[in-house]
Amino acid sequence: MEQDQGAVGAPHRFTSLEICAGAGGLALGLEQAGFDPVLLLDNRSIACETVRTNRPRWDVRELDVLDFDPVDHQQVYDVHLLSGGLPRVKSPATVARTRGDDAELSVLKAAVDLVYGVQPQAVLLENVPDLVRKSDYEPIRKVVGEELRHLGYRFRWHILNAKDYGVPQSREVGLLVAFKGDLMDRFEWPRSQAGARRSVAETLLPSMRGRGWRDAAKWAAQADVIAPTIVGGSWDRGGADLGPTGAKQKWARVGVDGVTVADQVPDADFVWDPNLGRAGLVPLTVEQVALLQGFPVDWRIAGRKTARYRQVGNATPPPLARALGEAIGSVLRKANEDPIRVTGK
């Protein structure tokens, strides 16, 4: 798949380094906002295959961020933006209760360490909303903040919901945005889009009709709502489903079987009747879940079904990434016109 021609022709292109690239949702949205990655990293081969399939010109490396040394990749020095959708950080209290490790926290710390090695003008990191709002995470926020201030960056934590940016899903995202020097003064979080929010029915009805399903319109009447949060799940256990019990119950109210992920959309003879329980609910395909995440219909996801679903479910919605990229790009364009603001001198 060739790179988006509109993005290529857009003025004021910027450079970026992306870590934990996953299925490419964040990178795609940032590309649409004017950012071209000089390097993308992910520690999963299947995720790297997905990004390479869709953007063969991008330099994608299968490499853990914990092992990444900018000295070996000097093209990343002084990029405009360091970005990443990081593994979901657990609170210190949760780690203590479960006797789990702090692998996700190590990735967050490694990302902040990269700020020192790369010296980007801006930083964008995405994670769980609880990292921003819960007191359990305050020690983590404090460590990150102290390090960024030490490096000469100012920053803000914030939560945005993807449904406010054209994604047909209620999906809160925790965000950290930082700028070198005093550029933070010029940054504004992207405003919510005006008008009605895009629904599940509006997004999926064309695909539901793809094999002649006669009950597609009947289902769509019940599914004229915003989707509940898509849960990517753990890479280490379980198959492809739409999340824990609570999430499955929410999907059932939309007429969807959240216990499984389908190989194909329903055929002409499928009878949709929620009164029959799971047998009367329609399962979604990976491609449909990708649409609910805001991926374009032609974005290909590599691998077998469970691996494909994990990539999609854990992705940053591209429309949200685009809105954030446009907000960051606006600051950087002004900085290029007034360079003294970049260093804060």
Rank of each mutant, 00 (worst) to 15 (best):
E31G: 11
L183A: 07
G303C: 09
D273P: 13
R191S: 11
V123A: 09
L108Q: 07
Q249A: 14
F295G: 00
R154F: 08
G145P: 11
E337K: 13
T306M: 07
S207G: 11
P283T: 15
R13S: 08
L30W: 10
E337G: 05
W272N: 09
W299S: 00
I159E: 15
V144A: 11
G313A: 03
T53K: 10
V95P: 09
A7H: 11
R197P: 02
R308A: 15
V115G: 12
G24D: 14
Q311K: 10
R300L: 09
L86K: 02
D185I: 04
P318R: 05
P139E: 00
D36T: 04
A268M: 08
V259E: 07
R310W: 10
R57A: 13
K248E: 06
V271E: 14
R304G: 10
G313W: 05
A10D: 02
A196N: 14
A96N: 06
A23P: 01
M1H: 11
D273V: 13
P87E: 10
W157Q: 06
L291C: 06
R214E: 15
G313S: 04
I230K: 06
I159G: 06
G22E: 05
V132M: 02
R300N: 00
L175C: 09
F270D: 00
E104S: 15
R186V: 04
P319N: 08
L82Q: 10
P244D: 14
V225L: 04
A262F: 12
R99N: 14
K134T: 06
R97S: 13
V128S: 01
P296L: 09
E287W: 01
Q222K: 12
A307M: 09
L125Q: 10
T229W: 01
Q169C: 08
R197V: 05
K109V: 15
E147T: 15
D136A: 14
N43P: 04
D72K: 14
I340M: 04
M184Y: 01
L291E: 15
N275Q: 12
L291M: 01
W235D: 05
G195V: 07
R211Q: 11
Y77E: 00
Q119K: 10
V312I: 14
N43G: 03
H73L: 00
Q293P: 05
I340C: 09
E172C: 01
A194P: 06
R304F: 06
P228Q: 02
W58K: 00
V256R: 10
V128Q: 00
V112K: 03
G329P: 03
Q75T: 03
